[in-house]
């Protein structure tokens, strides 16, 4: 009896498990010459499929220009996708009309890289925090005020900050305000785009702790876009590694970090300095720089820098292989 209920319970959670699923998502930007004629496509996001489970923190990592921010913005509908499908909480939200997507905004939220720049410099913090509630809810002024004050408390800011202007508070505090602004609407998924870039380590530490606390308090799911691998390892349950618009490896954080199988993931992890560990600069083997994303090599995109490259790599683009427990790798020769 008990086992039966458990089984049905796991089945139910398995169904409700996926909160956001992406299938074959593409975002191509036209490359134009001086006469505005299109001379090619920049494939910023190319055929990406992944599923985000409820309550998890999924890290998206990669170097600059790999398309991780474009992926986040395409999910939000900031960039219309060139192809593929996005399903959020059971509804297809690909190419949604602006009016229809407004309701969605309150449950799927995007946190910008620089929250200081996304706050209106001429508005007091209080007004910035009230705005989303005015747009999305029918609450009275008193109710809004109550909600804003409680959120402000949970992000660890004093109430006196409601009467400050953005320039009067520090960068770490601006980030807290940006988060508070998102949380007033009680979203279920937040896309965090480089949430700790530009912060000093001591401030970064407090912000990361805040993310973990808020996740428990509000039952959130994060899509954590970052290039900082030590932060990702610390906070994410699963990570997806991107290289030039493609996912090359995806899996449980610990599995990927302790046993990376794609040559790119291996070199990326080898490049991160580890204090107290071996020095990376003593024997770093990855040569060269990423190719121009507007002019990709044929076949595997990493083959121009790959140490294990074979002639066949130029023929066919590798698919993600799920031959391992909790890990998928887009390299036919990975072991």
């Amino acid at each position: 009896m008990t086992t039966e209920t458990q089984d049905t319970a796991t089945e139910n959670t398995a169904k409700e498990d996926t909160v956001l699923s992406i299938a074959g998502l593409r975002k191509y930007f036209p490359v134009r010459n001086a006469w505005k004629r299109r001379i090619g496509w920049l494939k910023a996001v190319d055929d990406i499929s992944l599923e985000v489970r409820r309550g998890e923190v999924l890290g998206i990592v990669g170097e600059s220009g790999c398309g991780k921010s474009t992926l986040g913005k395409t999910l939000m509908g900031i960039h219309p996708p060139s192809g593929g499908q996005i399903v959020f909480e059971g509804n297809d939200i690909t190419n949604m009309k602006p009016g229809a997507s407004r309701g969605l905004r309150s449950s799927l939220q995007y946190s910008y890289q620089d929250p200081g720049a996304s706050l209106d410099p001429r508005w007091k913090i209080g007004r910035s925090l009230h705005e989303p509630l005015e747009i999305h809810t029918q609450l009275s002024r008193e109710e809004r005020d109550k909600r804003v004050r409680s959120i402000l408390k949970s992000v660890g800011l004093p109430e006196g900050h409601l009467d400050h202007y953005p320039h009067e508070i520090s960068g770490g505090q601006q980030r807290r305000v940006g988060l508070a602004r998102i949380l007033t609407l009680h979203p279920s998924v937040i896309i965090l785009d480089e949430p700790t870039s530009g912060l000093d380590v001591s401030v970064q530490a407090t912000i990361l702790n805040l993310f973990s606390d808020l996740r428990q308090e509000f039952n959130l799911t994060y899509l954590f876009i970052s290039h900082d691998l030590s932060v990702v390892r610390m906070i994410c349950d699963r990570i997806a590694v991107m290289y030039l618009g493609k996912i090359v490896e995806i899996g449980d954080t610990e599995t990927v970090f302790s046993n990376p199988r794609h040559p790119y993931t291996q070199s990326l992890l080898a490049a991160v300095p580890i204090i107290g560990g071996r020095r990376v600069t003593d024997n770093f083997w990855l040569q060269g720089e990423p190719p121009n994303p507007g002019d990709l090599p044929s076949g595997c995109r990493f083959r121009t820098r790959c140490p294990n490259v074979r002639p066949e790599c130029a023929d066919k683009e590798p698919e993600l292989r799920s031959d391992w427990e909790g890990q998928e790798v887009a390299c036919p020769y990975a072991e």
Binding site: V201, S202, V203, Q204, S230, V231, M234
Partner: peptide
């Protein structure tokens, strides 16, 4: 010491330095 402990690490978690510069 506090600065080194602010670095993210799986082993000892993460500790910030309370207060501001």
């Amino acid at each position: 010491r506090d600065l080194l402990q602010s670095l993210p690490s799986r082993e000892h978690g993460i500790k910030g330095i309370p207060g501001d510069i």
